[in-house]
Structure formats: structure tokens, C-alpha cells
Design a protein around this nucleic acid. Structure first.
Length: 289
DNA sequence: AAACGAATCAACCGCCATGCA
DNA sequence: TTGCATGGCGGTTGATTCGTT
């Protein structure tokens, strides 16, 4: 006998997630960590397939995710990595902390592809398109991408070297260790290696006396705190007070454009809708607002 | 203001590799 | 060894937003 099916798909909800569903999933994972995804919907009280829960967490709710458009550097890195790895989005994403394979894939299809085509570069082969090659002087100047053609040439050159192939083979042999020919783009960080967010690891009671004020160089005038090992945090924090400041009818996350854009999630108190804490995933700094 | 098409991106689908029973 | 569930991945869809006329 094999395992039980992931879900029977009968009576399961599909489509966009609601704020309530998000809260349930966040609450469950922060409380219990990531366990068997098949069990998550039942234990979290969700009428969703475990697969759907995993995707929602991985691509949208994970607190270590970055938000907003890819930066110019990130785009360049994606192009570089795509030239080396092709459509291996998860591998590419592993080189960009806080970015998901889905996000990169979408960005590639909606933005980068067009930019490369405008520059006369075939997004599939990363080689010059014939029509543009004949008329290189007519290539439009694109913001921040004028050096990409040179970079692309470098990529082509590097692709011809055996070190790439060897590195790819080594990557495969090493069973999951991201391939990187030069370590220039390997930051030693893989999204798959993001530490699971255990509640006792990252959440704090801002009013708990055990907190230590950090000596962070943050420009904010408010006090900054680092995570502590408090054991009764969830009790103190009341997870339903999480507020992702998103418009759940549109799935947009408008608040990422405001002053809190540098943080990865915010926590509210009961009294109003203003966030009282923000968590920065890079430093794991928790800041009172 | 309305209609339409284009752009965006969250979510789903189907396949595959792996591991369990 | 075999059959099946699980987790992960890449491709695709479709609802929503945005921009233009």
C-alpha cells in the first residue's frame, strides 16, 4: 500500500485566498512550523488542498519574501542565470534571496523577455536576433540595460567554456547544491534553505521586560529589538492581530509601497489598525513602530 | 464615462523524482 | 519489487488592474 491521497478534492475551495484563510495558515505554520502539507489544511481548519497551502505559503505568505519589482541588479542576475540554467526557475530563485521561482518566472515572462527582445536578444538562446543584428544602431536605449548586451556577450563566451558544463554537472552530482561557475552570483543563500519560521524564534512580545534593545544602526528613531527565545510569545501576541495590510479583494499588497517597504511583515495591536511592529527578514530585526 | 485591449501575477494543472508501505 | 502518495517544478490559465481610445 502507498500513502493516503493528498486530498480528495471534494468540497475543497479553489481560487484566491481570503484574509481569513491566510491568517489561519500563517497562524498554523508559525505555531507548528512546516510539517506534512497534506495535514496542514485539516489541522489549520482550511478547506484547501495541501498543495495549495504549500504554494500560498511559499509564494506569498512566507515572511522572508521580498516584495515589489525586481531591482536592476536582480534582473541582471536573472538574465545571467537564465543564460546558464535555462528555465530552471527554482534554481534561479535560489540565487535571489527572498524571491520565489514563481515570481521570477512571471517577471521573466512579463518584463525581461520584452526588454531582451527590444534589445535584439533572443530570450531563449540569449543570442542576438537576426533582424537586430543587421541594424544594431537602431537598438533602443533602455533604462539600466545598456550594458546588458556586453554582459550577454560575456555570458555567451563563458557558456563556451567547459567550466560551465563541468559546474552544471557538478551541480547535478552534488544533489541540490546550486550551480555557480564563478561564485559571483552565489551568495551562499538558497530560498530552500531559509530557516523555517518558528514562532518561538522570531516573534516577541514588544512589551515583555526580557527584550533587549539593539544597537542597530537603523535610522528609525524608534527602539529596535531582536528576536528572543520567549516561549509564550504566541499567547502574548495573539496571532489574529497580524495585519498584512493587503487588499485581499485584489491580492495587492499596497503597504509595501509605504514607509514599511523595508520590512517583511507587520504586527498590529488591538486598538487600531496601525502596525506596532515590523520584522526585517535580512537582519531579523524586529522594530517597534 | 464607457468600452476595449494589454499587462500583470496569483493560482492551478500536470508531470516527475523520490520515498514510503 | 511494485504501486502509490508526496513534494517540487515548470507551464499555463484566468481574474483583475491598467492604459488607451
Amino acid at each position: 500500500m502507498g500513502r493516503q491521497p493528498c486530498c480528495d478534492k471534494v468540497g475543497l475551495k479553489k481560487g484566491p485566498w481570503t484574509a481569513e484563510e491566510d491568517k489561519k495558515l500563517i497562524n498554523f505554520i508559525l505555531t507548528n512550523g512546516q510539517c506534512c502539507w497534506r495535514a496542514v489544511p485539516k489541522l489549520a481548519g482550511l478547506l484547501r488542498c495541501g498543495k495549495s497551502c504549500r504554494l500560498r505559503w511559499t509564494n506569498y505568505l512566507r515572511p522572508d519574501l521580498k516584495r515589489g519589482l525586481l531591482s536592476e541588479d536582480e534582473e541582471k542576475m536573472v538574465i545571467d542565470l537564465h543564460a546558464q540554467l535555462g528555465n530552471r526557475w527554482s534554481k534561479i530563485a535560489s540565487h535571489l534571496p527572498g524571491r520565489t521561482d514563481n515570481e521570477i518566472k512571471n517577471h521573466w515572462n512579463t518584463h525581461i523577455k520584452k526588454k531582451l527582445k527590444k534589445m535584439g536578444i533572443d530570450p531563449l538562446t540569449h543570442k542576438p536576433l537576426p533582424a537586430i543584428t543587421d541594424q544594431p544602431q537602431e537598438q533602443p536605449q533602455l533604462d539600466g540595460f545598456s550594458e546588458l548586451i556586453d554582459q550577454k556577450k560575456e555570458i555567451e563566451t563563458s557558456l563556451q567554456s567547459s567550466s560551465i558544463t563541468e559546474a552544471k554537472e557538478e551541480d547535478q552530482k552534488s544533489n541540490g547544491v546550486p550551480f555557480d561557475s564563478s561564485m559571483e552570483v552565489n551568495y551562499g543563500f538558497c530560498t530552500d534553505e531559509v530557516p523555517l519560521i518558528e514562532a518561538h524564534e522570531i516573534l516577541i512580545d514588544p512589551y515583555a521586560p526580557s527584550l533587549s534593545t539593539s544597537s542597530s544602526s537603523s535610522s528609525s528613531s524608534s527602539s529596535s529589538y531582536y528576536r528572543t527565545g520567549s516561549s509564550n510569545i504566541l499567547e502574548d501576541l495573539k496571532l489574529p492581530n497580524f495585519d498584512w495590510h493587503g487588499d485581499y479583494t485584489t491580492n495587492s499588497m499596497d503597504f509595501w509601497d509605504d514607509d514599511f517597504s523595508g520590512f517583511d511583515f507587520l504586527i498590529n495591536d488591538d486598538s487600531d489598525r496601525n502596525p506596532i511592529m515590523a520584522v526585517d527578514q535580512e537582519s531579523w530585526k524586529i522594530e517597534l513602530l
